[in-house]
Simulated assay, not measured.
Amino acid sequence: MKRSAARILREYGPFPGVSSVHGVTFDGTQVWFASGDRLSALDPASGETLRTLDTASRAGTAFDGRHLYQIAGDTINRIDPATGDVLATIPAPGGAGDDSGMAWAEGTLWVGQYREHKIHQIDPQTGAILRTIESNRFVTGVTWVDGELWHGTWDDDTSELLHIDPQTGDVLECVEMPAGVGVSGLESDGGELFFCGGGNSGKLRAVRRPSKEAADVTDSDMRDNSEADK
């Protein structure tokens, strides 16, 4: 298994009125993050919060290319991002509130269950569980990128990003976050960045995804932007 230290390229927040960041997703332009009773859209270049939708949002968030999906207690809501209207609901697999992260891939939703160490692939129309992947760690945020399944984990002061085998659940790669830096939500930008919810820090972080390929955005550029925001 490969191990590396996380390269945090930028921090966003804390944001006014936000005490905790939960689910995170990316619509190709904006980063959406859940913060309890609202979903907010962030411009990752400027760090500016562009829009806010009033909706229950205490766990994972996903985007299917058209709609947002948000875990809200024992249900998952399908939301129109233009209006904030809830268009449909399906049962969340955890039922009692153990569901954590969520992602969209292969036309389905992938929902993490924190204490159960599981990721469920579910039908977005019915909520039926199609398959279950067992992890050996707590599961927070979940994301797919380039055919790779990643999930966050958070236990006391230790948090990591784990690349796991989607068939066996075996950990293939581990990215270790600094001590005390937690990961709640997790989403890829489809390239070289992960966006990580920071739980009760009220922050969102951009973390370099380990890759052999050169990134489009250099570390120095991101650090310069981060320093400028302080």
Rank of each mutant, 00 (worst) to 15 (best):
D43R: 09
A5T: 07
A34F: 02
S46G: 12
E192L: 02
M1S: 14
A96N: 15
K212A: 13
H120S: 13
A34P: 08
S35I: 00
A96K: 15
E192F: 05
T55C: 10
K118M: 13
D189C: 06
Q167D: 10
S184A: 13
P166M: 02
R66S: 14
V86R: 13
S57N: 07
D216S: 06
D54N: 12
E227N: 08
F63K: 11
E187R: 06
A179E: 09
E176R: 11
I90H: 12
A45R: 12
Q70C: 12
R131V: 01
G197F: 00
D74T: 07
W110D: 11
P14D: 02
A45C: 05
P14W: 00
G28D: 03
Q125G: 15
P91M: 06
E213P: 01
R10N: 08
P14C: 03
M102R: 08
D170C: 01
T140A: 09
D229G: 01
S46I: 05
P44I: 12
E48R: 15
A59E: 13
L42M: 09
A105V: 02
G180F: 04
L68Q: 07
V21L: 05
G97A: 09
G185A: 07
F195N: 03
T108Y: 07
R205W: 03
I129W: 00
M177P: 08
D37I: 03
G17R: 01
R208N: 02
G17N: 08
Q125N: 13
A103S: 14
T25E: 08
V171Y: 01
T218I: 01
G180C: 05
A128S: 13
A5N: 11
T89S: 15
S19Y: 00
P81E: 09
S226K: 06
G28C: 05
R137P: 00
Q30I: 03
D74L: 00
D146P: 00
D74K: 02
V111R: 04
D221W: 06
P178K: 05
A215K: 02
A105E: 12
T61V: 13
W110V: 12
D37S: 08
F15T: 05
D155G: 00
L130F: 02
P124M: 09
E106W: 04
A92R: 09
I133Q: 06
E106A: 14
T61R: 01
W110A: 10
G94F: 02
W110G: 14
L87V: 15
S4Y: 00
I129A: 10
L193D: 03
C196L: 09
D155M: 04
L39N: 07
